[in-house]
């Protein structure tokens, strides 16, 4: 019951935040230098004065601001994100067809970074001061400091250009006409390099955090109690240290979801991965702002959803959650 209340509270909060982002979007269009209509039309509209006035009318730009806002919010909520005059298609359609590719990439990278990062953190913490700890620490330090696009490019250089092991471009072999399992394998083959590229930075984050958190936990009083009970070292680490140490990592994973989606813009650009990130890059190149703002709303929505899921997972792991934040 209390968990339901907690989840309901988080859902409401998420909706409020989303509404705030929609309003922010609206304000951004209005605050941008120049005519909102030209912002929405992008470069496409700049030349044609008749087309612009038609746009202004369509969006109610001649009406008072609060009415415009109401129209805008209503449109977004009903999934009408406007029209990309560059691509000559509705924004919502353009976005939706790109969602699966991005989910595949970010989802894989998320799991990879979390699992490997936590494992490395545990390894380092349980061998603190030894060479394996130092190695993990140094690796984490490096990937924490490396720009993600550069990791991607160097990966291509090594694994595609030099070794020829992995494809460097796209999501599947163009003109391959593969189906079923063969197609899935082909996609997987294309996924390896971008997913690892995207995962490395966050892997470093989780590894550092898990290590620090484990080291902090093993000095807690309840761990001393566990030792005094004569429990085996392995059980103490697994049940007492790790379970408590993982809580801040879960919180961090939720917070970092936004960064993962941000990183996917760069990675999709490097690997020509046909997802939302790649689309974002194209919109920037073509100054297709209406589409870019659509990307902004969609990615925000994804982050809010991930945060909600993390909160729910957290509420199952930590019994104290009902006491409030």
């Amino acid at each position: 019951m209390q968990r339901l209340q907690f989840i309901a509270q988080r859902v409401v909060k998420g909706i409020v935040v989303l509404l705030g982002i929609i309003i922010l979007n609206f304000l951004l269009i209005r605050m941008a230098p120049g005519d909102p209509a030209s912002v929405m039309a992008g470069e496409a509209g700049a030349a044609d004065e008749v087309f612009m006035s038609q746009l202004r009318k369509e969006f109610g730009l001649d009406r008072p601001l609060h009415e415009q806002l109401a129209v805008y919010v209503k449109n977004v909520v009903t999934l009408d994100l406007g029209y990309s005059y560059r691509q000559q298609r509705p924004v919502a359609d353009l976005l939706l067809e790109r969602v699966p590719a991005t989910l595949l990439l970010t989802g894989t990278a998320f799991l990879l970074s979390l699992v490997v990062g936590v494992l490395l953190g545990i390894l380092a913490a349980s061998r603190v001061g030894q060479w394996s700890d130092s190695l993990v620490t140094v690796i984490a330090l490096f990937f924490y400091a490396t720009p993600i696009f550069w990791v991607g490019l160097m990966g291509i250089l090594l694994f595609s250009v030099t070794l020829g092991w992995l494809p460097s471009f796209g999501m599947y072999t163009v003109g391959g006409k593969l189906t079923g399992a063969a197609f899935a394998l082909d996609v997987l083959h294309h996924l390896i390099l971008p997913a690892i590229t995207l995962a490395l930075f966050h892997m470093a984050v989780y590894a550092r955090m898990t290590r620090a958190s484990m080291l902090e936990m093993r000095d807690q009083d309840f761990v001393r109690t566990a030792h005094a009970k004569g429990l085996r070292e392995g059980r103490i680490v697994r049940i007492h240290v790790l379970r408590n140490a993982i809580l801040p990592v879960i919180t961090m994973a939720g917070v970092k979801a936004g960064y993962l989606i941000g990183g996917s813009i760069v990675v999709e650009t490097v690997f020509a991965w046909p997802g939302i990130g790649r689309l974002a890059f194209e919109t920037v190149m073509q100054r297709d702002y209406n589409l870019l703002l659509g990307v902004f709303i969609l990615t925000s929505f994804m982050v809010i959803a991930v945060n909600l899921i993390t909160d729910i997972i957290y509420s199952f792991v930590d019994p104290r959650i009902e006491l409030g934040q």
Binding site: G258, S300, V303
Partner: peptide, 8 residues
């Protein structure tokens, strides 16, 4: 903090 910062 919720807004995806790089996209923003």
């Amino acid at each position: 903090q919720t807004i995806p910062s790089f996209v923003f």
